[in-house]
Amino acid sequence: MITAGVDLGTQSVKVVILKHGQVLARSKAFSGFDPARAAEQAFGQALRQAGISSSDVLHVTATGSGMDLASNANSTVSMMSADAKAGVYLFPTARTVVDVGAEEARAVKCDDKGVMVDFVVNERCAAGAGTFIEAMARALEVKLEEMGPLSLKAERASSINASCVIFGESDVVSLIHRQEPKPEIARAIFDAMADRISPMMHRLGITPDVVLVGGVAKDVGFVASLKRKLGIELLIPEYPEYAGALGAALVAVNRVKKV
């Protein structure tokens, strides 16, 4: 049985194709101004990669903030349920899944079958999410992918207030004016994000094992800050940004079985 999951995120669209519960293909495209088209592109790419045609796919489940835009989807599922499903599939011991994406951070509590039992989403500001790192990298004149490694070189902690992206940026500027070294500032940025995300997780209740997914999970600087803040180990899959799409593809499997 072949199924697919399409995750229409705020910044990129991700597609995962599954065959008998194994990942056959993964692909990604920038959402841009036309997320529906981006989804079609990513889907086509994934089909080619898998060497199959669209008629081979029994069921497509869409998720993500733009899920209603996926024209070829047979059903939809919330990002939170998709996260829970993927988290437990990747790590059967997972009971909490944290997803930090471009515009949103969320934490989901789940049972041993990967069914969500509770969730929280960050407040309406993107300071706890990926775009914050992008904005701050610009302020520091550092490439986005260099931010994490740079922050690990910091010798001490300095701090900024990440109540919002804009204020965060002005705090970063004050640190620059104080001639704080770049690694320290980079670390302060990740610490500030972790400061936003950890209280949210405490409100939910942190049940181990904790899995971290979403595009930001690839950033070593953020991972180090969040681990430090929570004082626990975080399980991170190989392709964390595909968790939503994977979860949707897994939900699609159950939906085929049900029919």
Binding site: V115, M116, N254, K258
Partner: peptide
């Protein structure tokens, strides 16, 4: 979705 605890998730 969580309340309906749908079997299809």
């Amino acid at each position: 979705e969580m309340l309906t605890a749908r079997v299809d998730i």
